[in-house]
């Protein structure tokens, strides 16, 4: 077997998961090929980490915590009855829509300010004549 073929089977070799003849062939190759042996060692050490970290210790307070969390959630649910849990999002949505609608409505009169302005000018034409008159003319008089 060539090095490339060995690389493809190393993980199965390391797990003893190959037919007997292939296991032997790879073992022989590794004995004579430094690069493959080096990679095999690298992979063996890396995979070994998985075996070392398995089975974390049982936390003695685990059940107490599960129970506390369950009770907390149950209390919250009792405090917020089912109708409220369904109705609340609906009310919030309606409020949001109402807010958007009100925003649009409040925004609209801003466009009418100009009209109001012109209306005032119509009512008090003399006052606004002053504004239109150049300052020089005014002083000359």
């Amino acid at each position: 077997m060539k090095c490339k073929a060995i690389h493809k089977k190393l993980i199965f070799f390391l797990e003893n998961d190959l037919p007997e003849n292939e296991m032997e062939e790879i073992k022989l190759h590794l004995a004579g090929c430094h690069e493959c042996a080096d990679f095999a060692e690298y992979m063996r050490k890396t995979l070994k980490v998985l075996n070392q970290e398995r089975k974390p210790d049982v936390n003695p307070f685990f059940y107490t915590r599960v129970k506390a969390r369950l009770e907390n959630q149950t209390i919250k649910e009792i405090a917020t009855p089912l109708w409220a849990r369904i109705l609340q999002p609906a009310v919030f949505t309606l409020l949001l829509l109402a807010g958007v609608y009100a925003g649009i409505k409040i925004g609209q009169p801003a466009n009418n300010i100009q009209e109001t302005y012109y209306a005032e000018q119509e009512i008090f034409p003399y006052l606004y004549e002053m504004a239109a008159e150049p300052i020089e003319t005014f002083l000359m008089e």
Binding site: R54, K55, P56, V58, N59, F62, Y63, R65, V66, R69
Partner: peptide
């Protein structure tokens, strides 16, 4: 089943605090 569940979560999450947190749920 505590050990089994925490270990399974740990295998996916690689962090013991997260694993216990999810295992409670």
């Amino acid at each position: 089943y505590q050990k089994m569940v925490v270990n399974t979560c740990y295998g996916i999450l690689h962090n013991i605090e997260d694993a216990e947190d999810v295992a409670q749920d």
